[in-house]
């Protein structure tokens, strides 16, 4: 398989789009402009927030702090990347938070209990995430359980299994001390730039290419845009939905590895609520819960907005209770602006 030239995911439109637009006089060109405007708007908000915090505190705009924002965004961000695909199909995945925790526990099982080598344990963990997604996909696509319910069930199953498997105690990676460097190893001399952030960046590119350059991405949009018409056109919608939920699961597996590595241990509790943070990032990024619309760039910006807000509010000493209020308001404003835009379109 030849690798395509990877374009930076700043625009999902090929340059030829604008070139040809001039030929067709009947096209409402402002409409396509508006599409990129939304992303510009989200990006501008991110910049604005950064500027405000930079003025408010001298400790905000420092290399170290920016890196710690990226680090904080990494785990939620990886979850949000996979979820973007699911949401564009018009579905939802509530199992990613506790699924991630279960994957972390499984990493502990593979590496510490079973003593597998590092690479095998990590690969198995990611595949285990894919298995969770596969089960979600089958439940939704073959059994016809609505995505909300299917993944709600999986969310509770994963939360319970984490506790059962670990015996409610954290699992430490005593056999493979290198495990913690997957997330934490500093890869740029001079500043503390963790490898986990680099992995996040690579995954952004992978997800963007998958979504905009492959058949998988095409059907993701097509299913979300008009599932019945897609099926009528001879696309095996059931199979592709299973593939898409499995893909989201693989991202969950990776997030499980990263978060366990970050803490140097698999914590069997928690994870509840993380799925909503990831979904919030996706939604702030302009992906529609109705399906059919969305982008990876948007999701990344959404994840960064959330991370910057949390970090910045802490730096200017806003109590933690209020940080959640602020994020909530941001979600409402972002989604309302998006609705306004669509209504005028």
């Amino acid at each position: 398989m030849t690798s395509p030239t990877v374009t930076p995911p700043t625009s999902d439109r090929s340059p030829s789009t604008t070139a040809f637009a001039a030929i067709d006089k009947g096209t409402p060109r402002f409409a396509r402009l508006r599409g990129s405007l939304q992303q510009l708007l989200a990006f501008a908000s991110l910049i604005l927030i950064v500027v405000v915090f930079s003025i408010a505190s001298p400790h905000f705009f420092t290399a170290n702090n920016l890196v710690s924002i990226l680090t904080a965004a990494t785990v939620t961000g990886v979850l949000a990347l996979g979820t973007t695909f699911v949401i564009i199909t018009g579905g939802i995945d509530l199992s990613i938070g506790t699924g991630m925790v279960l994957c972390g526990v499984m990493a502990g099982v593979f590496l510490t209990y079973l003593g597998w080598p590092l690479w095998a344990g990590v690969a198995a963990t990611i595949l285990f995430g894919g298995l969770i997604g596969l089960i979600n996909g089958v439940n939704i696509s073959v059994l016809g359980i609505p995505p909300f319910i299917a993944t709600l069930g999986m969310m509770l199953i994963a939360a319970g299994l984490s506790l059962v498997i670990s015996g409610t105690k954290p699992i430490y990676f005593n056999e493979t001390p290198e495990f913690q460097s997957i997330m934490n190893l500093s890869i740029i001399p001079g500043i503390r730039f963790p490898m986990g952030v680099a992995i996040f960046i690579v995954m952004i590119v992978v997800a963007a290419v998958l979504l905009s350059k492959t058949i998988l991405g095409r059907y993701t949009f097509s299913i979300g845009s008009n599932e019945a018409a897609t099926a009528l056109s001879g696309v095996n919608v059931r199979r592709w939905k299973i593939v898409i939920y499995t893909l989201a699961g693989l991202f969950v597996g990776l997030a499980g590895v990263l978060s366990a590595s970050r803490l140097s241990s698999a914590q069997p509790t928690g994870g509840m609520g993380l799925e909503l943070e990831a979904i919030a990032a996706v939604v702030i990024g302009g992906t529609s819960l109705q399906g059919g619309k969305g982008s990876i760039v948007g999701t990344v910006i959404g994840a960064l907005i959330m991370a910057v807000l949390t970090n910045g509010l802490r730096i200017i000493s806003v109590p933690q209770e209020w940080q959640s209020v602020a994020v909530g308001i941001v979600i409402l404003v972002a989604v309302y602006l998006d609705m306004l835009r669509r209504r005028r379109a």
Partner: peptide, 21 residues
């Protein structure tokens, strides 16, 4: 029976995409 979020060409050839590799 169209997918509003896809382009004209994408709609016409849905399920019969031109693939590079």
């Amino acid at each position: 029976n169209l997918m509003p979020d896809l382009t004209v060409a994408q709609n016409i050839y849905i399920g019969r995409e031109q693939r590079a590799a």
